[in-house]
């Protein structure tokens, strides 16, 4: 029987910088997956880290990675043609089939936009299955905006609101307003009745966004959160990612909000 802890080798097809501390790596892993799922990426000698898939293709997967630790910094050094070790995909993604016909509200903060990009790609590939798409994407500064190229394309098709905590002096081709993503969300008219909202970002931003959505009439069952947790095994055993008895790696990382509620302390 296969050893479930052992990652397999795949080819790096490309690696492109997004911002000063993030990059997107395309890996030649042809695998069925749903948006919101993740893989365990290994760099021998550094360790392993869970990275969400930010694309929707059966030929390859894209991983948007922020350099915040040993593994992610080592991954930044991998070049086209080199080998990366992966296992997965793991977890439960967004229940796209069940959301057919719905308007999609996307709320993302920082690198939390990465798993949502997989969902956006899916919606693009199945455009007729969904209604209106509105996005609320927040970043620290214009320099921290990821998927700039894709954003320009999305802008033509969807309702987009980009916020940055501080504009600073940098020029950006992206039209972003200063403030928090929750401000933009609060000021916009979004209909709760035929919508599903997908949130991913820092805990405080998720909490704030959930509050606003609920005040606009969203029920817990219409809100999907993609959670981040420390994890090692990704198979529901090591227990680090447990939230009130649910495993982020197995039952999540995407949860319908009524399934977990207490994101912070559960």
């Amino acid at each position: 029987m296969d050893n479930p802890y052992v990652p397999r080798p795949y080819k790096v097809l490309s690696s492109a910088r997004e911002t000063a501390d993030t990059f997107t790596m395309t890996v030649g892993m042809a695998v069925l997956h749903s948006p919101g799922q993740f893989v365990q990426v290994s760099v021998p000698g550094y360790g392993e880290a869970p990275i969400s898939i930010c694309s929707d293709s059966r030929k390859e997967i894209k991983l948007n990675i922020r350099q915040v630790g040993a593994v992610t910094n080592a991954l930044a050094g991998l070049k086209k043609g080199e080998t990366v070790l992966l296992r997965g995909p793991y977890g439960k993604g967004y229940p796209m089939k069940k959301l057919n016909g719905k308007d999609i509200v996307i709320v993302g903060g920082g690198c939390g936009v990465a798993p949502l990009k997989g969902l956006i790609d899916y919606v693009e590939n199945h455009r007729k299955d969904f209604g209106q798409v509105s996005m609320f994407l927040g970043y620290r500064s214009p320099d921290d905006i990821i998927f700039k190229k894709e954003l320009a394309g999305w802008k033509k098709k969807y309702s987009i609101n980009v916020t940055v905590d501080k504009k600073g002096n940098t020029k950006s081709c992206i039209d972003a307003r200063e403030g928090f993503v929750t401000d933009a969300l609060g000021e916009t008219d979004i209909r709760a009745d035929k919508s599903a909202a997908m949130i991913c970002g820092p805990p405080i931003m998720m909490k704030g966004s959930i509050g606003i959505l609920k005040s606009k009439g969203f029920r817990d069952k219409q809100i999907f959160v993609s959670t981040e947790r420390l994890m090692y095994c990704a198979m529901g055993v090591c227990c680090h990612c447990m939230i009130r008895g649910k495993f982020t790696c197995l039952d999540g990382p995407v949860f319908r909000y009524d399934e977990i509620m207490d994101i912070e302390n559960g």
Partner: peptide, 8 residues
């Protein structure tokens, strides 16, 4: 108790 972590 069966929690574990891994490291290289």
């Amino acid at each position: 108790c069966y929690c574990f972590e891994t490291h290289d």
